[in-house]
């Protein structure tokens, strides 16, 4: 959490901007805090945003560690979520403990495949992963939309969403976190997300695999000369990134909604980039930064309700300024280091 200063700077700037809208910045700040943590209900909503942000943040971070910029978390997540919903709708008779495992495994494979394609194209064909993953996002949105609405639409609703998965797939009654936060989508996947973040930290810093991945990320040429196949590592990293984003299926389908709803994501995949940057790609830091961004998202969405001049668009401005603040701090550190060397 070295970038907390940048976060605060961006937030302060954004709050000062509210002066121009005729609001009292302190007042806006208290609304933000209150509507993010004010009650168990508010906290539950914040946590329900936090969970997918942890997964997407980890997905982006593992790409960065391998020297790749994964902008495709959104698409990988979409593929995974629609796959989980498809398994749940098309195979309704799988018994309980097996069913959610099956759905999540299928989701991880779908997300991983979506990442693998980008990784393969990057490593073997030399196509730039930024372009590829952006385009894969659009393909995922199209495919998922088609599948959800033409193959397994919800017959009881005009909303663009899939049918509900069979109840065997949900861990509703066994979910202690969900019981803590009634009426919110918060669920036990949050615990999974934290566990996975810790596992990823161990993987990156305590295993040879993680070392290879970071070696390729910091200097592919040197890694190559040291006998590491940078192509294999790049493909593996993107596949892992896809699978990590795919874990969102756990919180969205198995944990809360029980279906894929088109537009369920307020751009988790993209906010995930900010989450990863804010934590300098440290998996443990991502837990905290995802929580901060989740709180900001929940808090900002209530500004519309509580103030007269600040609309939903303003929450985007706050997020953008926070990201700029974080990036600016990163740049400043880099600049200082360079000056010291030079």
């Amino acid at each position: 959490m070295k970038r907390i200063f940048g976060f605060l700077l961006g937030l302060t700037l954004a709050l000062l901007l509210t002066l121009f809208a005729g609001e009292n910045p302190w007042n806006v700040f208290t609304i933000l805090v209150r509507s993010a943590f004010g009650s168990m209900y508010d906290l539950g909503l914040t946590l329900s945003y936090t969970t997918p942000l942890i997964f997407c943040g980890l997905s982006v971070a593992i790409g960065f560690h391998a020297g790749l910029f994964n902008i495709g978390a959104e698409g990988q997540m979409t593929m995974a979520v629609v796959t989980a919903a498809a398994v749940g709708v098309l195979l309704p008779d799988v018994p309980f403990p097996l069913a959610p495992v099956l759905a999540v495994l299928a989701a991880l494979i779908a997300g991983g495949l979506w990442g693998w394609i980008a990784g393969w194209l990057r490593a073997v064909r030399g196509s730039h992963e930024v372009i590829i993953t952006i385009m894969m996002n659009f393909i995922a949105a199209g495919l998922a939309g088609w599948f959800a609405l033409k193959i397994i639409p919800n017959p009881d609703s005009q909303n663009p969403e899939t049918a509900l998965v069979s109840p065997n797939y949900m861990f509703k009654d066994y979910d202690l976190v969900a019981r803590l936060f009634p009426d919110t989508p918060a669920n036990a996947s949050l615990v999974f997300a934290i566990v996975i973040a810790v596992l990823m930290w161990i993987f990156l810093w305590k295993t040879a695999w993680g070392f290879k991945l970071r070696a390729v990320g910091s200097n592919p040429e040197a890694a190559h000369r040291a006998g590491i196949s940078e192509k294999k590592v790049q493909i593996a990293a993107m596949t892992l990134a896809g699978a990590l984003a795919g874990f969102v299926a756990l919180s969205e389908v198995v944990g809360s909604a029980g279906q894929y709803r088109i537009g369920f994501s307020p751009d988790y995949g993209f906010i995930g980039i900010a989450v990863a940057l804010m934590a300098s790609n440290n998996p443990l830091g991502i837990i905290v930064s995802a929580f901060l961004m989740g709180a900001l998202h929940k808090g900002a969405s209530d500004l519309d309700l509580e103030t007269s001049t600040i609309t939903r668009d303003f929450s985007r401005i706050i997020q953008a300024l926070v990201i700029l603040g974080v990036v600016a701090q990163g740049y400043w550190e880099w600049f200082k280091q360079k000056r010291r060397k030079g």
Binding site: N159, E161, P185, R261, I262, G263, F264, S265, P266, S301, D304, L305, T311, R312, S315
Partner: peptide, 8 residues
């Protein structure tokens, strides 16, 4: 208020 996303 205007809805931002489906969850909202």
């Amino acid at each position: 208020v205007e809805a931002t996303d489906t969850n909202a």
